[in-house]
């Protein structure tokens, strides 16, 4: 019995290592010199590691990483401000049209991103939102708000009704009750929604490439895309940038794994 379990673990480790080989390769390449990359057979391990790739990554892509950080944080803030009250209302109030709203939210997620890009472009052009942080935050929020509403609503409908009743009896208004009872109880759900909103905005490429020209701001995904498209590219620099752009995902996985599973099954959505 225990022998079988050990075998299972061994098989599991082999499966994971095989599956994650591309991630290993990204790290391996990021630590090699550009000359080493043009050798065949390739160096399987970074035996002689160098930070050249990272130096180039920071030099050429550092500002784009910052741009994405600002956009992602802005998206988290906007998303939570808009979604949390709405989720509470959809979970608790018996308002006419609630089901219709939930359906709209579900449908938003199913509309292909290219359609959103195509249709938002003229609107953004009119409103002067192209090449701006505000525009990117609003565009990315079309991805994150529906997701956050759905996941928060599921959690918020689990808040015991007695808690809310008690606050109401004490004379709290709806908003006060929401702020001092519902939000604290739903802290974990808010973290989950916030983390995923960050990741969605951070990883967005379609809106970034559609709504920025690179003149003023350029998110990191577009930075990598143009970096890769450059024929004389140093791949150690590209892979170092890729590693840096993966940091939020890695942090999310290491610190909040249980929220990740909840996020996938709760909203079930990714671009």
């Amino acid at each position: 019995m225990s022998a079988r379990r050990v075998t299972d673990t061994a098989v599991g480790i082999v499966l994971v290592l095989t599956f994650l080989a591309p991630v290993y390769w990204m790290i391996n390449v990021s630590l090699q010199s550009s000359d080493a990359l043009l050798r065949t057979p390739p160096a399987w391990f970074p035996a002689d590691p160098t930070w050249d790739g990272y130096v180039e990554a920071i030099r050429t892509q550092g500002s784009h990483l910052l741009t994405s950080l600002v956009i992602a944080l802005g998206t988290v803030l906007f998303t939570l401000l808009v979604s949390a009250p709405a989720a509470h209302a959809l979970a608790r109030f018996r308002l006419r049209g609630t089901l219709a709203l939930v359906l709209v939210v579900l449908l938003v997620q199913m509309v292909p991103g290219i359609v959103m890009a195509n249709s938002l472009y003229p609107v953004f052009s009119q409103l002067g939102l192209l090449d701006s942080y505000a525009g990117m935050i609003l565009a990315d929020s079309t991805l994150t708000v529906p997701f956050a509403v759905l996941i928060l609503r599921t959690f918020m409908s689990g808040v015991p009704g007695e808690l809310i009743e008690a606050a109401r009896v004490d004379g709290c208004g709806q908003w006060r009750t929401f702020g001092s009872v519902v939000l604290p109880v739903c802290r974990n759900a808010l973290i989950t929604a916030g983390l995923f909103s960050f990741l969605f905005a951070w990883a967005d490429f379609l809106f970034a490439v559609s709504f920025t020209t690179g003149n003023t701001i350029q998110p990191i995904t577009v930075g990598i895309y143009r970096f890769v498209g450059n024929q004389t590219t140093n791949w150690n620099g590209v892979m170092a940038t890729a590693v840096l752009a993966s940091v939020p995902a890695a942090i999310l996985l290491l610190t909040a794994q249980r929220y990740v599973a909840a996020g996938i099954t709760g909203g079930g959505v990714k671009e």
């Binding site: 994650l20 991630v23 990204m26 490429f205 895309y225 990714k270």
Partner: peptide, 13 residues
Amino acid sequence: GLLLLPWLLPLVV
């Protein structure tokens, strides 16, 4: 949990 990594990485990466 580790197997989730590819899903979390930006697609551009």
